[in-house]
Design a binder for these strands. Structure first.
Lengths: 105, 105
DNA sequence: TTATAATATTCCCTTTACGGTATATTCCCT
DNA sequence: AGGGAATATACCGTAAAGGGAATATTATAA
């Protein structure tokens, strides 16, 4: 799991941007307005998100539409899935079983 | 979605700790050894993870067993779910439909 | 080609995060 | 009570992150 994905999402404005992009692609200007960011900061945050692979850009004249990329989201889902078995009933029972074995030494 | 969760996971050593805890609860000492961290750093990272609600501690004499908490993982799964609809087939079609409407102006 | 709109980058400054080391705390054992 | 193990906290120094403002880039239109 690449930590740069989490690092990108750790900044409130960037998380906000991601949430805006759930509705569909947006230009830098639109993002700046909807987040209350100044244009340079919006660009800079989008750069970080882009470097982390969370968004991609689609050019249209001198506007740039940013949109979400699916891959990192799939990666996160897979990672969460790998954590999920901790709370899996069967794993819990196995855990207790092993603990009991240890206790017998 | 609380960004402190992502901030906690953004640090490589902390992500590693979480991944170790997938196997079950561990003491600070065990975590320090398995990650190659010195004990104080391990404690500090665990503090961050704890403040973010990702782990909880269970005392046993002067040892402390850290284990994963389920809630933030459920929260992340729900959040990812809210992003998922972007790639939903139907949403995509609606998007194209709206774009076509705009083009007619 | 020049003006303008949209976006990206640079520089500076301040704050925050992290590692290292020392020290404090807590608990057990005798 | 005193010693030692396990863990937490404090303090310091450095490096990275983030905002602000100015400037550079790219594309369009006249």
């Amino acid at each position: 799991m690449d930590t740069s994905i989490f690092a990108a999402l750790a900044e409130p404005s960037r998380l906000r941007i991601i949430e805006l992009l759930r509705e569909g692609p947006l230009t830098v200007g639109a993002i700046a307005i909807q987040t209350g960011l100044r244009q340079p900061q919006a660009s800079k945050h989008l750069r970080v998100l882009s470097d982390a692979g969370l968004v991609e850009v689609q050019r249209d004249a001198n506007k740039r539409y940013y949109k979400l990329r699916q891959e990192p989201f799939l990666e996160m889902e897979a990672w969460l899935e790998s954590c999920r078995r901790v709370w899996d009933e069967r794993f819990d029972r196995l855990d207790h079983y092993l603990k009991e074995l240890q206790g017998k030494d």
